[in-house]
Simulated scan of single mutants.
Amino acid sequence: MTVKTARQCPSWLIPSLLAISLAPIVGCSGKTSTTRYATASTGSACYAKALPTAGEGGLAWGNTLSMARKKSLDNCIRYAGRSGGTPNTCQVVLAECRN
């Protein structure tokens, strides 16, 4: 009859594997989040929406009405082209400024 003994792991192996697996999570926890895109709450007073005859349109905020209209038209052309729509038919359908 043969007797098999249990193989023992070095005492440092399991804590090392645990530390390696948690390192990426711990490294990100100290970073503060930053806002990458301007939103309506950052002070832009005007907004505009542009739509094509087919595909996705674009909504944009800007400090002036003309800036919001231009940005929404640019967004409409970009999104309509990506969604298989008709970018050359984009029109601004709504443009307003808040009080």
Rank of each mutant, 00 (worst) to 15 (best):
Gly27Val: 09
Thr35Phe: 07
Thr34Phe: 01
Tyr37Pro: 00
Pro24Gly: 12
Ile14Asn: 05
Cys46Ser: 06
Ile25Val: 14
Gly27Asn: 13
Leu17His: 08
Leu18Asp: 05
Thr39Asp: 11
Leu22Met: 13
Tyr47Phe: 09
Ser41Tyr: 01
Ala38Phe: 01
Ser16Ile: 09
Gly43Val: 03
Ser11Thr: 11
Ala23Lys: 05
Leu22Ser: 10
Pro10Phe: 04
Leu18His: 03
Pro24Arg: 13
Ser16Asp: 07
Cys46Ile: 03
Ala48Thr: 00
Lys31Ile: 08
Pro24Met: 11
Trp12Ile: 15
Ala23Trp: 12
Gly43Asp: 02
Lys31Asn: 08
Ser44Asp: 03
Ile20Cys: 14
Gly30Met: 11
Ser29Pro: 01
Ile20Arg: 03
Gly43Leu: 01
Ser29Phe: 13
Ser16Leu: 15
Ile20Tyr: 08
Thr35Cys: 05
Ala45Cys: 10
Leu18Asn: 05
Cys28Trp: 10
Ala40Pro: 00
Leu22Thr: 12
Ile14His: 01
Tyr47Glu: 05
Ala48Ser: 06
Thr32Phe: 04
Leu13His: 03
Cys28Leu: 14
Thr39Phe: 05
Ala19Ile: 13
Thr42Val: 04
Ala40Trp: 00
Gly43Asn: 05
Thr42Ile: 04
Ile25Arg: 08
Tyr47His: 06
Pro24Trp: 12
Cys28Ile: 13
Lys31Met: 09
Ile20Val: 14
Ile14Glu: 05
Val26Ile: 11
Leu18Val: 14
Gly30Glu: 15
Leu22Asp: 02
Ile25Gly: 13
Ser21Trp: 00
Leu13Lys: 02
Leu13Met: 08
Ala45Glu: 11
Leu18Gly: 07
Trp12His: 15
Thr35His: 07
Leu17Tyr: 13
Ala38Asp: 04
Trp12Ser: 15
Ala48Arg: 00
Ala40Ile: 05
Thr32Met: 08
Gly30Lys: 12
Thr34Ala: 06
Gly27His: 14
Cys28Asn: 13
Gly27Thr: 11
Ile25Cys: 10
Tyr47Gly: 06
Leu17Lys: 07
Ser11Lys: 11
Ala38Met: 02
Arg36Asp: 10
Tyr37Ser: 06
Ala19His: 09
Thr35Ser: 10
Ser29Thr: 15
Ser29Ala: 15
Ser41Ile: 03
Pro10Tyr: 04
Gly30Val: 12
Ser29Asn: 14
Pro15Gln: 06
Leu22His: 02
Pro10Asp: 10
Thr32Asn: 09
Ser11Asp: 11
Ala40Glu: 08
Ser44Arg: 05
Pro15Ile: 05
Ser44His: 04
Leu13Asp: 03
Ala48Phe: 00
Thr34Glu: 06
Ala38Gln: 07
Ser11Val: 11
Leu18Gln: 02
Thr39Lys: 09
Val26Ser: 09
Ile14Trp: 04
Ala38Pro: 01
Thr34Gly: 01
Ala19Leu: 15
Cys46Gln: 02
Thr32Asp: 08
Leu22Lys: 05
Gly27Cys: 12
Ala48Val: 01
Pro24Lys: 12
Lys31Pro: 00
Thr35Gln: 14
Ala38Trp: 00
Gly43Gln: 04
Ala48Gln: 01
Thr39Met: 05
Ala48Lys: 00
Ser29Asp: 13
Tyr47Leu: 04
Lys31Gly: 07
Pro24Phe: 11
Ala19Lys: 13
Trp12Asp: 15
Pro10Cys: 06
Thr34Gln: 05
Ala19Met: 11
Gly27Ala: 15
Pro10Leu: 03
Ala45Leu: 10
Thr32Ala: 14
Val26Gln: 02
Thr42Lys: 06
Thr34Cys: 03
Ala45Asn: 10
Thr39Asn: 09
Gly43Ile: 03
Val26Phe: 04
Arg36Cys: 08
